[in-house]
Design a protein around this nucleic acid. Structure first.
Lengths: 345, 345
DNA sequence: TTGAAAGCGCTAACAG
DNA sequence: CTGTTAGCGCTTTCAA
């Protein structure tokens, strides 16, 4: 039995078939030089006859670029990152880039693999949406001169462009809104503060509670230790909260997923939202309007943030080494009012 | 001001620095030949001194592979695809592949771009989780001899491996369960049947309703025309449904997102779930357990399906042209009972 | 165990 | 407008 292993057609063969020089084919394909109509037709015929497809790998090799950008996030099934990814993908596409998606699932080893991948020029640059813990890895990226743009990543002390949200301001808006509604007993539920953003939110919450002299209780501040599903965390902490003797009248959460878990806990135990307890999340993921009652949340424009990160990355790739004009934006979040909050009567 | 434009260090330079042949460095790096300890050390020192990173693009070019697989889905922010993607990414990683994520957002033009990308060997193979409408594009993939594995894609008449779910069986399980609970008035809400899977679900529903002689009404079958957010569709159809004079006692939906939209519509209008109306979704996405009441659903093992697709794809890439032993699996879905259904009293 | 050498398929000067 | 030519950085025989 003879295997018909079809050999790959190359540009050289197309050129021969068309009776022109290889470079002419290249020029035609890339539009890098004008090609006479007749020549063009010969080439087109040859391409069709031979069923030719250009080998992009060879082109990339030659051009010293891959037209790929890496996106580094912990988990695509987390809607926050999915929406961010969408922004990155869309903006990348508009700039003729494709996206290599790398998700770590919070595993240390994979972070390292990712850095390996990046420094070996498998991608032209990378959008990092994940707080790499190991300073060492960041150094490696830096030393390898990899173009990097950060998104939703805080507290890295180098000159990479970044786009983040002002967490303190976000928390302020949330509390301020609850104050307007007459709440003075507010609890705070948080996932493990593995990222600086979460630390900031918690710190801000405590600060505003103090500054505005709200009622304060140690056990209204619940912070999960273990890294696990955000909704489970919210459910767990929410359940724990309502076992307390004295209930708060409102609850803020470190993220929407935690809030949705808490919502489930409250509703399951017969509490009504917002009649018995008001609830605010953080991020404003799509889910907020999916649940009932819809969840009031502090909005991070994830999609736009993803787009902006790509814009910045593009500049770095282009080689704007202007240390002066650093691209660092801090976006002010906005409060999206829905049905999970109510004035105290 | 002098720009320190650091030139890229190549293997040749490492070899020179170490005082060995380039091929020796290559052998060392790839383990393709034994290298003496002393030589090894010289190479390692040279690599560190020069801050060398191998250029993967060059390697790919030479090896005629990219170690990349493409994943083609409509939308990552749809949890169904996010979970599928996760399976693909994980399995890919285990097989030393990375994933190029391509999302079309249901735009025709992007489908075409994707095919372009694939046939030009930017990836070694591709997992298609999207019903490409244009037969022409599929032909092109076929002609270009691109390795393809299908997941959640039906009705393509060629020899690609595929993994799909038995929709008819899924719907049967759902209805059967509702029957056990005493329901005989069941509505069906569906997003636009842009994919054959959705057509099958709808057809199966009608079939079982007939076979089991359930109460039937034209206006209990609501199918959206316009392509838009799934939850909005569910909300819209749910709202429409309850305007009917005669309400069904249970509702099946073409997907969980539609069900969640319907749930919102019902709850918003004061109906209680499951006391007043029972609800079943399809897919069993994470959200099912996030909402309140949690949603009973027909489970597709998305993560596993993604993994299986990669397994199949790997075989195709390896070149198992055995037309005989076709990898085509049809998975039986399973009913996941939660709190959105109740027996009729 | 190491080295020399031949390309992989394409792009990009440059010359004509 | 078209052709010649010289590599890109690496892998991979083959010989030493």
């Amino acid at each position: 039995m003879v295997e018909e292993k079809m050999k790959n057609v190359t540009m050289r063969e197309v050129a021969r078939e068309a009776g022109v020089a290889q470079s002419t084919v290249s020029h035609f394909l890339n539009g890098t030089a004008p090609v006479a109509l007749e020549t063009r037709n010969k080439i087109i015929r040859a391409i069709q006859k031979l069923n030719y497809y250009p080998n992009v790998t060879a082109r990339n090799f030659k051009r010293r670029k891959t037209s790929l950008i890496g996106l580094f996030v912990p988990d695509v099934t987390n809607p926050f990152y999915a929406e961010l990814a969408k922004g990155v993908i869309d903006a990348a596409k508009e700039n003729s880039y494709n996206v290599l998606l790398y998700a770590t699932d919070y595993q240390r080893k994979l972070e390292k693999d990712f850095v390996e991948l990046v420094v070996s020029k498998q991608v032209d640059g990378v959008v990092v949406g994940y707080n790499l813990i190991e300073e060492r890895l960041l150094d490696k990226l830096d030393k390898a001169q990899v173009p990097v743009a950060l998104v939703d990543v805080y507290g890295v002390n180098n000159s990479w462009p970044s786009v983040v949200v002002n967490n303190e301001e976000g928390i302020r808006q949330g509390i301020s809104y609850l104050l307007e509604l007459g709440h003075r007993k507010i609890a705070y539920l948080s996932e493990p503060p593995y990222a600086l953003a979460l630390v900031e939110r918690q710190r801000s919450f405590l600060r505003w509670v103090r500054d505005w002299k709200l009622d304060f209780r140690e056990n209204w501040i619940l912070v999960e230790k273990k890294q696990r599903n955000r909704v489970e965390i919210g459910f767990f902490l929410g359940t724990k909260l309502i076992k307390e003797h004295s209930l708060p009248t409102a609850v803020m959460c470190s993220s929407d997923l935690v809030a949705i878990g808490a919502m489930k806990a409250f509703l399951s135990s017969g509490l009504r939202i917002p009649e018995d307890i008001s609830l605010i999340g953080f991020d404003d993921i799509l889910l907020c309007s999916y649940v009932h009652p819809s969840l009031t949340s502090i909005k991070q424009p994830k999609y736009e943030m993803g787009r902006t990160a790509v814009k910045f990355l593009k500049k770095v790739i282009a080689g704007n080494n202007s240390e002066e004009n650093e691209d660092k934006v801090v976006i002010n979040p906005s409060l999206v009012k829905r049905l999970s909050c109510q004035a105290i009567n």
